[in-house]
């Protein structure tokens, strides 16, 4: 099987989000970076499928030069190689992102053969656009199933389980297909030290791209005015238990 998984570099924001003075981005001087948990599960699934079925897994990102870190992280848990669509760090909208990914997939397939699966996160961690995977599927004329919590490949088809209120909906589609996945699909492994070493040797194909004019144009970011609260301290240690019971009683929860 040949599988491509798309990931996006995002800051690990911790307890409070602080913006840059121009409100165009999150201030990241003191932050680490990661990818969405959904995408982490996509990476893990690609590695497992290739471990079982043989073939090759490729990770792709569109992002600044620093996003190579996320590509190496994916290769450290077993992805074979990477494609880096290098930007100047400005964010691309969903349409432009999908178009660039489609172009890269076409080029890659022309030289190395078709992918059986293209895996995306159901939504990106930061933008939450809910669209890049769907747009790529349409441009390539492949079926697209979203929000998946289970994937099983058998005889050229893939059985997909999607979380739905009160249960799961099951889909069965032929390969090649585009799937968008959610955290809970699997439990991703942690990278080993030898895995990290190997990842450094694995190839990254780079291509620099110019950002087209956005059609969904960000003007500025805002931190919502969630009320900052001053928690009432009910006490310290187990001695606080009676006050907690009082509270539960007052709220009618006992």
């Amino acid at each position: 099987m040949r599988i491509l998984v798309a990931v996006k570099r995002v800051p690990m924001t911790g307890g409070r989000i602080v913006l840059t003075p121009d409100a165009q981005a999150i201030a990241t001087e003191h932050l680490g970076f990661t990818i969405s948990p959904h995408e982490e599960c996509g990476v893990e699934e690609a590695v497992r499928l290739v471990e079982r079925e043989g073939g090759e897994s490729v990770v792709l990102t569109l992002g600044p030069p620093e996003a190579e870190e996320q590509l190496r992280d994916a290769m450290a848990v077993g992805i074979d190689r990477a494609i880096h669509l290098v930007t100047d760090g400005e964010e691309w909208d969903g349409q432009a992102t999908a178009e660039a990914i489609v172009e890269a997939v076409r080029e890659e397939e022309a030289t190395s053969g078709p992918f059986d699966l293209l895996l995306f996160g159901n939504e990106s961690a930061d933008v939450g656009g809910y669209q890049v995977g769907v747009r790529v599927a349409y441009a390539l004329g492949r079926p697209c199933v979203t929000g998946l919590k289970a994937i099983a490949v058998e005889n050229g088809r893939v059985r997909c389980e999607q979380e739905a209120p009160g249960g799961r909906d099951v889909y069965e589609v032929p390969l090649p297909a585009v799937l968008t996945v959610k955290e809970g699909l699997n439990l991703p492994r942690y990278p080993s030290v030898p895995g990290r070493m190997r990842a450094r040797q694995r190839p990254v194909a780079r291509q620099e791209l110019e950002r087209p004019a956005p059609r969904l144009e960000r003007l500025r970011l805002l931190v919502p005015e969630g009320e900052r609260k001053e928690a009432e301290i009910l006490g310290h240690g187990p001695e606080a238990a009676p006050r907690v019971v009082e509270l539960l009683d007052r709220l009618g929860l006992l």
């Binding site: 187990p238 238990a241 907690v244």
Partner: peptide
């Protein structure tokens, strides 16, 4: 802890002691 700026009430302590004490008190 940042959660205290979003919480209405807090107990400062080890959950392994506090939670069993709440269970017992109920």
């Amino acid at each position: 802890a940042p959660i205290l700026s979003s919480a209405d009430y807090a107990v400062i302590g080890d959950l392994h002691e506090v939670v069993p004490a709440i269970v017992e008190a109920i």
